[in-house]
């Protein structure tokens, strides 16, 4: 385009220098190759793996059912509830209202302090505390006594604990409540990472607090929120193996473990569990990549690289558009 100015001096020869050697890399490749060879050797020659048995068991109906219902569906449900509840708690935590703030703090304090295994056990045994749960006016019988009415019941409905606080729902309750506490901290960090000028600009335009949060702050906070949420999802996927504490038996690891013990050959089943969890985690990674890409609109390497290119083009007096594509 505008090379006539720079053409005054002849262009010097391109530099042909001997590159820096990296002997360390070759050494590490050699060490790694030996280690991999040893590992493969064990896989192939150690007869305890029982590969055929492993492969057959991995796709047995109860295992696949446990994988779909106990592991995948539970992870999905617990994360959806956990993220939604966590976002609400994070907003409460950052609110001007001191009561909401303390409630949110107490919630995260409690549910981050109790181990998931313990929490799941409690959720599975809530029936001991209440054999029947009913909804209505609180303290109705006590109020009734106060006014001389015996056995006053102002209830609109209820359920028997044994029908609800067992199995899937009890597991979901424990995992989701625990997850919400961690997600609340992640969302809070995300919201606080957004430049306060963004909120001011939105408020100066007349947007309400809610609109500012939903339209301006949260979309930008997502960039910070998504990566640790990916971590949380992966942790949740693995923590579904704790569901046995509820107990929930249609779950991947429990089923594989059961087969292993029934056939007096547990080790191949542990390997099978590893393989399943590896596959599922890898799928999650792919999903996270696309979500991260979506929320980095207007930021990130791509935008910055394009900007640099434009800047360079402008400096050289060329049309930016021609190069930036």
């Amino acid at each position: 385009m505008s090379t006539d100015v720079t053409d005054v001096r002849a262009r010097p020869e391109p530099i042909k220098a001997v590159p820096v050697r990296h002997p360390g890399r070759w050494v590490s490749i050699a060490v790694l190759a030996v280690l991999i060879a040893m590992f493969v050797h064990v896989l192939l020659t150690n007869s305890a793996f029982h590969w055929r048995f492993l492969k057959e068991s991995m796709f047995r109906p109860p295992v696949v059912d446990g994988l779909l219902r106990g592991t995948l569906l539970m992870t999905l449900c617990a994360m959806v509830v956990g993220v939604a509840l966590g976002a609400v708690i994070a907003v409460m935590r950052l609110s001007d209202n001191p009561i909401l703030r303390s409630v949110a703090w107490a919630y995260t304090w409690f549910f981050r302090s109790v181990p998931r295994l313990v929490l799941l056990t409690i959720c599975g045994n809530l029936g001991i505390l209440w054999s029947r749960v009913e909804f209505g006016v609180p303290f109705d019988t006590q109020l009734g006594k106060l006014f001389g009415i015996s056995a006053l019941h102002l209830r609109i409905g209820g359920f028997t604990s044994r029908d609800v606080f067992t199995g899937f729902f009890a597991g979901l309750l424990g995992l989701a409540l625990s997850e919400a506490a961690y997600m609340a901290e992640i969302v809070r960090a995300g919201i606080q990472s957004v430049d306060p000028g963004q909120g001011e600009a939105a408020e100066a335009l007349g947007l309400t607090r809610g609109q500012t949060l939903r339209r301006i702050i949260l979309p930008q906070a997502m960039r910070v929120i998504v990566p640790p949420t990916g971590n949380e999802t992966m942790a949740m996927l693995k923590d579904t193996s704790l569901l046995i504490a509820v107990p929930v038996t249609y779950e991947l690891f429990f089923q594989l473990d059961a087969i292993g013990h029934k056939k007096f050959d547990p080790f191949p089943m542990y390997v099978a569990a590893c393989l399943w969890y590896l596959v599922l985690s890898s799928l999650l990674l792919v999903g996270q990549y696309f979500i991260e890409r979506h929320f980095s609109r207007g930021y990130g390497q791509q935008a910055r690289a394009r900007m640099r290119l434009r800047g360079l083009a402008a400096e050289q007096g060329g049309g930016g558009e021609g190069i930036a594509t």
């Binding site: 430049d195 000028g197 963004q198 001011e200 600009a201 939105a202 100066a204 335009l205 301006i216 979309p219 930008q220 929320f295 609109r297 207007g298 930021y299």
Partner: peptide
């Protein structure tokens, strides 16, 4: 009341 800030504060997303 319109306001223009020193640091622009455009919404980057």
């Amino acid at each position: 009341i319109g306001m223009v800030f020193q640091r622009f504060n455009l919404f980057p997303h």
